[in-house]
């Protein structure tokens, strides 16, 4: 327990250490960090149980960003629909595949050179490993996305890129011995997003996200979390330039069981 907490703190420390400190020793063009932009993300995560091993993964995200002097909530940034079918191989491993349709809103609503909304389709598949410990859980998530995106500038072309995402996160109960209804939990969350494609030159690191979350389990079918995320990633135009963001994040997690009553009886667990 203690060792895991220690590792988590180290990771957080590294995550929040300004990159200038790391890059001081390296020769060449120094890294430059843009002033952080601000976002507010409201995400809903749905898992609808269709069968003993099958789930429908349904996510809807609404994201706003700073604009015209208003931080976080200045304008609509994206509306995000992610759907997929999850297959639960065991209680320690699952795989999901599906599609995404993201609506990117114009960064300059008053500028006629920009289209108000641009569609960004994606295909995604992910592989989630769960590691149970006595008092907490550790997850390793590998997600690969194939995306077709373009800027909102009128006449801009779609470009194809692949994203390689690795996410490490934990669920650590705070006020209970285990994760159960009524439990407050702390979820340290770090995700590295790499990318490849013709347009990717010196900017393979698209994003590195640090998300320390505080959550609450209302019941087995509903929980919430709140966090303030910090991200940094290489700019499309110049790999030495890093964009940074502060993102206020509120998530709702819900699940339904569409199976018949008699199929809902949980299997007997002989291992615990």
């Amino acid at each position: 327990m203690k060792s895991i907490l220690f590792i988590t703190l180290i990771l957080l420390f590294i995550g929040f250490t300004p990159l200038e400190v790391i890059s001081q020793e390296i020769e060449g063009e120094p890294s430059r960090f843009k002033k952080p932009s601000t976002y507010a993300w409201f995400h809903s995560y749905g898992k609808v149980r269709l069968g003993e091993k099958l789930f429908w993964d349904a996510q809807t995200h609404i994201r706003t960003t700073q604009y015209d002097g208003t931080d976080y909530f200045g304008r609509m940034a994206q509306i995000y629909n992610r759907h997929g079918i999850k297959y639960l191989f065991s209680k320690r491993f699952s795989a999901t595949a599906g599609g995404v349709l993201r609506l990117n809103f114009t960064p300059q609503p008053d500028n006629n050179n920009y289209e108000n909304i641009v569609l960004e389709p994606r295909i995604w598949h992910e592989y989630l490993f769960s590691m149970p410990f006595d008092y907490f859980k550790v997850f390793h998530r590998f997600r690969i996305e194939h995306r077709w995106s373009r800027t909102n500038l009128k006449g801009s072309d779609y470009r194809y890129r692949n994203r390689y995402r690795y996410k490490y996160y934990m669920y650590i109960p705070i006020n209970r011995q285990k994760l159960e209804p009524g439990a407050l939990y702390f979820s340290p969350d770090v995700e590295l997003i790499m990318q490849s494609g013709k347009s990717v030159r010196d900017n393979p690191i698209e994003d590195l996200r640090f998300t320390p979350k505080i959550g609450y389990i209302v019941n087995p079918r509903l929980q919430y979390s709140l966090s303030m995320m910090y991200t940094l990633g290489q700019s499309n135009l110049d790999g030495a330039r890093y964009s940074t963001r502060w993102i206020f994040n509120f998530n709702v997690y819900y699940s339904f069981d569409f199976r018949k009553f008699e199929n809902k009886i949980p299997e007997t667990n002989f291992m615990d």
Binding site: F55, K86, S130, Y171, P266
Partner: peptide, 14 residues
């Protein structure tokens, strides 16, 4: 009753 939580990957009693 026991319900599977697909986020925390745990069987939860309610």
């Amino acid at each position: 009753r026991t319900v599977w939580n697909p986020y925390t990957y745990t069987d939860m009693k309610e």
